[in-house]
Every structure is written in structure tokens, then in C-alpha cells.
Amino acid sequence: MVLPLKTLKKRAAGDALLARFGSDLDCTLLVGDDDVDWLVEIADGVVERVTRGPHIMPRTDLRLRATSETWARFLEAEPPPGYHDLFALRRFRRIQIEGDIRLMSAYLFYIKRLFSLLRSPETES
């Protein structure tokens, strides 16, 4: 997995934008690439648990899957046009977004922020 999801909990902790736009969010996201699915469990806006797959019939609210190459370009410090936002990926059919779209729309700033935090150069741990 090219996305540094195992550091997501640390990256998200105390983030002001996540708090501003999703302090009451409860959901489970599935994030996938070519190789593996990860589950991101969020409670009261806090990333509680991030677990690497494979998962057997996971219960999820929203599923976002793209190729490893797409995620790699999304992660670039200066992502190229068309790779710089989840909806840019959607526009060019580079990502599959499925599940509770109502929830996604209500908390879209939070979800976009969560993914943009994966871009920062924080060291993996």
C-alpha cells in the first residue's frame, strides 16, 4: 500500500480542520489499492483504529479504491492536475467511491482533509 495509512492515526490527532468539520463523525472507511484494503475506524471525529487487510466481509460505510499508481500520484507534494483531490480522481474515473454517499457529502471536508494529511512528509512509525 502506497498510502501511509499506518501513520494516519498519528497524523490526524489534534488536526484543527478535522475537528472543525467532523467532530461528531462516526464511520468506518475502507481504503484500497492494488494489493490490500485498510479499514479506518472513526469515532466522534477521532481516528480510533487503522487495520490492514485482508478483512473478511467487513462492515463499512464508505469504500474508496484506486490503483497504487493513482494513489502514488495523489500523494506527490505537488500533485499534478487531475490527481490533486479525491473528486479530481473521481472526475477522471481513477477512483471508485461507493457506500453511504449522504454521509460522505455531509462530512466531505473531513474526508478530503483526512486523505490530504497523508501527503505531509511525517516519518512513518
Binding site: D85, A88, S105, A106, L108
Partner: peptide, 21 residues
């Protein structure tokens, strides 16, 4: 649909939808 729906804040969702543009 979600730009104007009773269970979603239309202002925030509209802004979030266009934010990546």
C-alpha cells in the same frame, strides 16, 4: 442530490464538493 438535502448542510457540502477545483 446532496447539495440540497434535509440531512446534509448544503452550504458545507457545496463548498466541499467544489473545494478541490
Amino acid at each position: 442530490t446532496w447539495l440540497h438535502h434535509p440531512t446534509v448542510h448544503g452550504g458545507e457540502s457545496s463548498a466541499a464538493y467544489v473545494s478541490g477545483l
